[in-house]
Write a protein that binds this DNA or RNA. Structure first.
Lengths: 241, 241
DNA sequence: CTAATCTTGCATACATTGTTAACTAAAGCA
DNA sequence: TGCTTTAGTTAACAATGTATGCAAGATTAG
């Protein structure tokens, strides 16, 4: 983007902001969401609490920034895994696995990010624009499904098999895409995403414990089933690790 | 259960407990989870905050009790809808819809109940027993799927199509059931539950807004698809209302 | 180089929270 | 009648988010 000839002050400020974020994250991980207090962060940094107000207007804003940073980290992890895979099927399988891997490795962070709306963060942006971080995250899977369909189309619902009300909404969303796609593809993407997100979030939130002690194999089974739905069932392969 | 000849004091106490719960719920709905403070509840009841400690050992315990009451309310709503439907397909469709309906009508309560593990409530019970409320809730759908399979079996995975690790876990869970079932049924139940819960929770948590302005039609599409998976695709019927 | 300004931090203060302790009055029971 | 249990009170403590005003350092203008 814009080449940044940082002045000395700006550099120090950026470093402080960075330290605040990492400290906040450390507190989140060690003490949970409740331990994520301004004063605790300041204390851990050897600062006074009001000093943090030089960097964030409120605790809420600080946490929002943290959420954003975590979303970016997760997205970057997905993109890295994607770019390391040679073929499309590998990209889809490994990105899905990386999503779960990240969630399981960072349950506190995952919980914060994906319940931020429930906590009251993630208020709709005042200027009505789209959250760019969220969009970049969504694009990882969106682009993969798109490319999959364009290069080796999988069976989808015909337009007249989709309920009218749903069709209108899918159409509206579709209109935001760079290239137009059959609505059935959009629908398939949503279904897949619901199952992927559902499985992972239920596991992290402990909502599968009633049935499964380790949801990993169930996740793989879902993945296999999703692969079949997307027409590459035969090319499913277990995780390399 | 046990016939309860309530003494006067016990009756008054029960009424107070009841009032605390309803007040707490009112605060939750009006002010969100953050507004759910001991002092606010006491204030709204015209009591002093420490008085609440005669009824609950801590704020956390009070909220846990509220979560439990809400779970019971939701489960009862599901059971009522189930018992009002004459046939099995109707029970399954309408129970699923009632789950979503309750969630949409009570988003604050739904969020509290289904993120309670994320908040740190729902700690495993000290005596290692199973949460009876959770079990009763799970049984609603569990029993319906069971009866569905027993009366009109749907296609399931054969045992040797299920990964060994997963099979072991399903078997272990299966052993808790009154009647033994093929593991494929258990697996189908989990898949369905993940999609049902996934769709509803994502809608309530605002995680589908990026694509859909009203997730109702998508929910119906999921329901139709689940019905097909369970062998009653042809008998799908739209909501009566 | 000096003086004005901007930035970053501090200590203090305030209202609010969960929780504990000490106390009081009423209810129930011998 | 007297003793115990219960349900409530007020006062206090520690911790939180946040607002204010001040001091010292960094940066910049003249």
């Amino acid at each position: 983007m814009t080449t940044a000839p940082l002045t000395r002050r700006e550099r120090l400020r950026a470093e402080t902001v960075e330290e605040i974020q990492t400290t906040a994250r450390r507190m989140l991980v060690s003490d949970g969401y409740d331990g994520l207090s301004l004063r605790a962060i300041a204390r851990a940094m050897g600062m006074s609490a009001p000093a943090l107000y030089r960097y964030y207007a409120s605790r809420e804003e600080l946490i929002s920034a943290l959420v954003d940073e975590l979303k970016i980290e997760l997205t970057t992890a997905l993109e890295t895994v994607r770019d390391a895979q040679p073929d499309l099927v590998g990209k889809l399988l490994e990105c899905s696995r990386e999503f779960r891997r990240w969630a399981m490795a960072h349950p506190a962070e995952f919980t914060l990010v994906f319940t931020s709306s429930a906590i009251g963060l993630d208020r709709p942006r005042e200027d009505g624009s789209v959250d760019p971080t969220g969009e970049r995250f969504g694009n990882v899977f969106g682009e993969l499904i798109t490319e999959l369909y364009l290069t080796r189309p999988f069976p989808i619902l015909a337009d007249d098999e989709i309920d009218t009300l749903l069709k209108d909404q899918l159409q509206e969303w579709n209109d935001c895409f760079p290239q137009p796609l059959p609505l059935g593809v959009t629908h398939a993407f949503l279904t897949c995403w619901i199952r992927l997100y559902g499985t992972v979030s239920m596991e992290v939130f402990g909502q599968l414990k009633f049935a499964l002690s380790d949801a990993g194999p169930m996740f793989e089974a879902e993945l296999r089933s999703l692969g079949a739905m997307l027409g590459f069932g035969g090319e499913y392969r277990p995780p390399s690790a």
